[in-house]
């Protein structure tokens, strides 16, 4: 196993209102078995030992499911593989590589520090209608409504969204259409979601627009970047749902 030497150019920004810049670090002894975040851990341990502030980045489960981590690596959200940054391994890189690491860039995701951005806009979009109103205790027996497997599979495919924000980061317009669509399609596909189908779609789209995300120009970068493979067709479906909701008033 040969260890690699890398040149890292990382966006450093001390705070939300501070200016930032790409800062260069040389890092030696990087194992191909390391995850990308473990590589950053190694850098941070060195910086800490030298009394310098480590690079701040969001991370938690490190299993690709919590959606905390996210950074643009050499221009790609989550880097060159179709997975999250925490599941990206250094074997995807070679000795001597120069790696540019930047935060998600979007007007609706302001930078908090270094690679950490504020994604609370996503929570507000969900709060606008990304739920089925079913107060605890009110549920009927689970088998009261059969759900056709096709609908269940469509719902699941869209429910896989981890809310990491890679779609917004990758979109040249900083659009949150794929994120919003994933939830709209998930819930609208199910019979349980039918009563709120129109209001959900209307309210979530309105919330998405109000947060300052851009519009969709059907570029498709979002779906390419999505670590969970939410398809671009979810946006098509949401468009259909939206026009349907407006027709129904």
């Amino acid at each position: 196993m040969t260890l690699m030497k890398l040149t890292l150019r990382i966006w450093r920004q001390a705070g939300p209102d501070e200016p930032g810049a790409m800062t260069t670090y040389e890092l030696d002894g990087v194992s191909p078995e390391m995850s990308f975040l473990e590589m950053l851990d190694t850098l941070n341990e060195r910086l800490s030992a030298e009394g310098e502030e480590p690079v701040a980045f969001d991370h938690d489960c490190r299993e690709g499911i919590c959606g905390s981590c996210g950074m643009v690596i050499n221009g790609d959200a989550h880097g060159p593989e179709r997975t999250t940054a925490c599941q990206l391994h250094m074997r995807s890189f070679s000795d001597g590589d120069v790696i540019d690491i930047e935060p998600w860039r979007a007007g609706a995701f302001p930078v908090i520090k270094d690679l950490v951005v504020d994604r609370s806009a996503f929570d507000r979009i969900i709060g606008a209608g990304g739920y089925i109103t079913a107060p605890t205790g009110s549920a009927p027996e689970a088998h009261a409504t059969a759900v056709p497997k096709e609908a269940a599979d469509l719902a699941f495919e869209n429910a896989e969204c981890i809310g990491c924000g890679a779609c917004v980061a990758a979109c040249p317009n900083g659009s949150a259409m794929l994120f919003t669509a994933a939830k709209v399609v998930h819930l609208n596909a199910l019979p349980q979601g039918a009563p709120e189908r129109e209001s959900r779609t209307r309210e979530m789209v309105a919330a998405m627009d109000a947060e300052g995300f851009g519009g969709c120009t059907n570029v498709g970068e979002c779906a390419t970047a999505c670590p969970k493979g939410i398809p671009l067709f979810s946006i098509t479906r949401m468009n259909r749902e939206y026009l349907r909701a407006l027709r129904k008033g």
Partner: peptide, 17 residues
């Protein structure tokens, strides 16, 4: 029951159960 009502997409059989 509660989770199904919330739209949790549990695995289903072809019959929808």
């Amino acid at each position: 029951d509660q989770c199904v009502a919330q739209g949790v997409p549990f695995a289903r059989e072809y019959g929808g159960l």
